[in-house]
Structures are given as structure tokens and as C-alpha cells.
Design a binder for these strands. Sequence first.
DNA 1: GGATGCGGGCGGT
DNA 2: ACCGCCCGCATCC
Length: 438
Amino acid sequence: MELDGLVPQNEEVVTWDINDIKLPKDVKQTDWFQEWPDSYVRCIYSSDDKNAQRHLSSWAMRNTNNHNSRILKKSCLGVVVCGRDCLSLDGRKMYLRPAICDKARQKQQKKSCPNCSGPLKLIPCRGHGGYPVTNFWRHEGPFIFFQSKGTHDHPRPETKSEAEARRSIQKAKLPASPRLKQSRDTESLTGKTQTWNPLPLIVSKQEDLLSQSSSFMGHFRDKTPQEQALNTCLSLTKSYSSAKTPDLVEHPQNMDCNKYLSKCKLSGSRDYSYREPMEPTAFVYDEPRQHQTWSKNASLEKNSPAERYRNSSTTIFAGLHCETLTSVNALDVGIQYAPNRWEPTVKVDCHSFRSHASTFGGGTTEGKPHQNYSGSNIPSSFYQASPEDPCVMADTDHHYCQNSLPFKGNEWCFEEERKYTNADHCNSEMLLNIFSLR
DNA sequence: GGATGCGGGCGGT
DNA sequence: ACCGCCCGCATCC
Ligand SMILES: [Zn+2]
Ligand SMILES: [Zn+2]
């Protein structure tokens, strides 16, 4: 059942559908990227939004063929849980991210629970009429239209970055020789149980993670733990960032956290080409020429300085990446935890922000930058910790990064920002903190 | 290796 | 026609 118009996006009534021949062209404001879109929502992202460009979602979504090259369709793979419903030390369940690749997923299901070595179980998504929730992406001019159909009927899996972190850590900790590796593959192919994550990655204390991390990293003779960690961190953010972090690369061990943090403040999106909102017409689905032409016209020429300014800040937010928002948990536990009692999320808004001077000129972050970016449920890093817990520190840093974006956007901020592409540095820094605190 | 996209093909409604 | 989905191919990291 469609809920057309019932969930106003952008404080306006949604009048479009992803399948419409024409999509709205007079978009006054774009939405914050949603990491966990759920239910029947529709969003309009800026085409500058890196996450939207990559069609990212923290749900495990896989591409599916809808025989329509204009609209990218993805369906949810659900979540992987322990077949024994085991709990971590702190009493939380873990929710692993299903591998997106079919082959990899099959392999994954042969592995065993990293916590109790029990079998893993894939909970399929049946949130859309008994079928997986589907997401649709459609690029149109300066916007990326997004639509979700169905409500996930399962817990959230670990995020993409968390899953990547897990892989990196596992790879790093098992610099297995080719021979050993081969036997392992054979084992998995024959269906024998293989503990997915032999190392006790499931820990409830950051302390534990730290010690474990540095211990396995200590195996590398040629690199310091910091360097090793850094490599991991950088590799994790690589796919999201086109920026270089020369300081870190060249002098990781000398990197000062505060210094690094200051860079976080300047982090944002790299691409500032913005397009003016269109005349109140629409994007024509079946007339590629039209929107292409339009795109060209609108791209760069019509921007007045004021427009450029406000638009650039718009882009700054749009450029924030998933990792920035998933916080330090990329390495904190590596696994998505949640309370034992899982409640389906009912409502999710597209957190939009006004692309008006008020949002910017104020120089505040009142444009609800903190508003549950991840929707109305448990934070990805569901983590009980004491104030002195390193994790808290890291998380604080994370928020700081998010709040410290150059809202005021003077020319300097603007330029500086271009140097430090995006907020991924925040993430890298957090990761670095984790490993270097010791 | 695995994430992502693409698109041919098949079967069900 | 629309949808779910399997499968191989290609690209990129
Ligand atoms: Zn288990
Ligand atoms: Zn789902």
C-alpha cells in the first residue's frame, strides 16, 4: 500500500513517484542523506551528495534488475544473526551485514558466529508485501531522487563501514601464508565450519579492542602499530574520499589529534558545482535530450555569489559521508549491536535543511544537524560507556566534526574545505585515536 | 575478494 | 506489463 503524500518530505507534500514520467524540477530544498531510510519515503538529494551518488545505504541493499536503465533498483538482503541467538559480553545481540555479492553471501553463511562459533542465520527482509524492501534511485539533472518501498522487518545490520572494518581487521590479523590460505579456502568450500572471526572482536570495552588490535598489529615488523592502524583507517575511507591526507601518510606517528581534528572542522564536500533550482517544470523521463540540455544550462552559469555561497554550504552537508555519521563504531566493535528487544522503526523523515540564508547566515547549527541522522532507532554504536571511555571521546570528536562544518562559510572556509575534501577525515581521525591512544 | 552496475533471461501474477 | 530473481560480465577499490 502506497502512502502517497502521507509522509511529507521537505515539509512539502510529496507529489512525485520514482516512476513518473516527469519529476519535479522546482525543488526548493534537498534532503539530508539518509543512512537508514525506512518505510515509504522519498527523498531528493543533491547530485553533489556523495552518498547519494553512490546509492549508499546502511541497509544491506543489493542491485536488482528492473530492466530500466534510468532507475536503479535495489532490494534488501536482511541481516545475518547468530543461529543460537547468543549475546555479547554486555548482553547485546550482534547483527552482521549480509555480503552483497551472492557468492560471498553463500560463503558467509558457511562461516560461524564470531562470538559463540554457532551457525549463522540470514534473516531475509520481507518488509514489502512479503518481499524485500526495495530502494530506487534516479538521477535527474542536479538532483538524485530516492524512493523506498516497504518497511524493514528486521534489525539493522552492521553498516558498510563496519563490515569493511571487520574485513580489514581480519585480513590484517591473519597475514596467512598462501598455503594456509589455500587450505582455508578449501575448507570453506567443503562446507566445513570456519569461524568467521576467530579473534575476539566482540568486546564490550574499548580497552579490550585496543589491546587486541595492537596485539595483532604487532605482528607486523615493518610497521608500527600506528602505521598499521592508519593504513587500515585510510583504506576504510578510501572508497569515500578522493582527498589525500599527506600529513598522515607521511608522518602518521607525529600526527597530532588536535591538529587532525582541526582538519575535520574544515572537512566537507569537494564538489561545489551547484545548480540553480529549475523553473517549475519537470524532468522528462523519456526525453533525455531535454534534461541533459537543462543540466548543462543550470550547472554553473547562473550562480550569483550569494547563490554560490548558500549552495556551497548546502553541498557541504550533502557531502557528508556515511562513515562520518556512523561514528567510531567502525572499529569500536565491528559488529552492529542492538538491544535484545528489537522494535521496528515506524517513521523516518528525510532530514532536509533549508537552502536559505537563514540556515547559513545564522552561523549556527540549528538546522537540526544532529537530528537523528540515522532515523528513529538505536544508534549504530549502541554502546554503554563511562565518561572516561575512549569510545566516548571518539564519539564526541565525531560530533564535533559534524557540528564544526563551516556553516559561516567565508571565503576561507570555502577554500580550505576544498583542500580537505570531506568529513571522512573525521572518521580516520577517530580510528587513529582508537589505535594511538595506547 | 567483494561491492556495484548492467542487462539477458525465466517464471509468476 | 510488472515484479522477483538467477546469472554472468565488467569495473573499481
Ligand atoms: Zn553466536
Ligand atoms: Zn530489509
